[in-house]
Every structure is written in C-alpha cells, then in structure tokens.
C-alpha cells in the first residue's frame, strides 16, 4: 500500500491538513498511534505487523489499496465524527484520533455490513441539509448541522421522517466510539492502565474500602 495514495484518496489534505506538513503530519493524524519511524516508513507498512498470516497480509494490503468513500463523503464523515466525539478538556477529537480512516477501513473490511448503510446514510444527511438549507451537510453552518443532528441523535424522540437518520446516526456513533476509544488518544483518556507485564494482587486497598469489601 502506498501511503501517499491513501492520503490523496481520502482527500484529507484539503480539509483538516491545511498548513500542516503533509504527508508525515497527515499520517500522524490518520494513524496517530503508529506513526512510523523513518526506517519503518521505508518498508512502507501502513500498520505494524502483528502476527499476520499470509492470507491476512494479502487481504489487508488489498483493502488499503482500495478507496471506498469519495472525498466529499470523507469530509462529511470527518465533520460528523467530531460532532459525536469532540475535543474537550480531557482529550482530542475523533478525527484527531484517526476515526475517519478507521471508518473507511471498516467499510471495506465489512462491505455487506457497512457500505450501503454508511453511503446511504451520508446521502440521507446531505438530502436533509439541502432540503432545509439548500447546501450539503459540510457546507452549512455549525448551528445548522446541530439542528439536523438534534433530530437524529436521540432515538426515543421518534421525530416523524427521521427514523432512517436515527439508525444511521446510531451506526456512526458506534463506529466513532469504537475508533476513538481504541486509539492511543482514547485509551489514554479512558485511563486504561493495563497491557503491561505486572503482578496482580487484587484491587487497591482504597478501592476495597470504597466498596465496603475491605
């Protein structure tokens, strides 16, 4: 897989990378956790190898060589995931954690499950934006975007005509959470302390005390 093609394909250069040093910086944004050292970059693996079989290597390479979402769709996804998980005082946003690239990958990894619901959902969203504001979702203002999102982000409101949008937004929310909380940024925010060799001696004393189990 050629990293440059990947970046060109998803068109992030035009959206969030303005003024940044592309492509090294873009790679960091896309895959913040695995930004390769210069030596690794020469070998051109997009991801570190982690015990892949030959079948798996071939399959992943094929997926990386393909591009599913259009530039416009990737821009819409990027805006949407940052509405779902924005930057806050604890950590960065979903796009900073590489969520758009993750969603692009999953759409190709599980085409039956994701391609039509995501492409169709993005189109549904643009259609809503055009009906209401005569522009696509990425072209309308933040306040206008939120007006639409408010109608599809709360499943129990059951606003007429919005049910398909609700299903799409649920899927986007879930994919965004999966992508964000499994990123380096997300794991740090969550405070997961494991995946290091250690000794286990039961919960800390103050925790036992807190729950009356001391």
């Amino acid at each position: 897989m050629k990293r440059r093609n990947l970046l060109k394909g998803i068109g992030l250069g035009s959206l969030s990378l303005v003024g940044l040093n592309v492509p090294a910086k873009a790679a960091e944004l896309l895959y913040p956790a695995i930004t390769p050292t210069p030596e690794v970059e020469k070998k051109d693996p997009v991801f570190e190898q982690f015990g892949r079989t030959e079948h798996e290597k071939a399959r992943d390479a094929k997926i990386f060589a393909e591009q599913f979402f259009t530039k416009h769709e990737m821009q819409t996804i990027t805006v949407l995931v940052d509405i779902i998980i924005p930057k806050d005082t604890h950590s960065g946003s979903a796009s900073e954690a590489g969520v758009p690239a993750f969603i692009e990958f999953m759409a190709k990894d599980r085409p039956e499950e994701f391609q039509t619901p995501l492409r169709g959902g993005l189109s549904w969203l643009d259609n809503q934006a055009k009906r209401r504001f005569e522009k696509t979702f990425i072209e309308i203002s933040d306040a206008q975007r939120i007006e639409i999102v408010e109608d599809i982000a709360y499943p129990n409101r059951k606003k007429p005509g919005m049910s398909q949008g609700v299903v799409f937004f649920n899927l986007m929310r879930n994919l965004t959470a999966s992508g964000f909380w499994t990123s380096k940024i997300g794991i740090q925010d969550l405070g997961y302390q494991g995946n290091v060799p250690n000794q286990w001696d039961g919960p800390p004393a103050d925790v036992l005390k807190q729950y009356g189990l001391g």
Partner: peptide
Amino acid sequence: KWPYQSPRR
C-alpha cells in the same frame, strides 16, 4: 499489541 496496531481495531 494495542488495538490501534490492527487497522480494524
């Protein structure tokens, strides 16, 4: 390995 080492997490 960390989840982000897998492109599909």
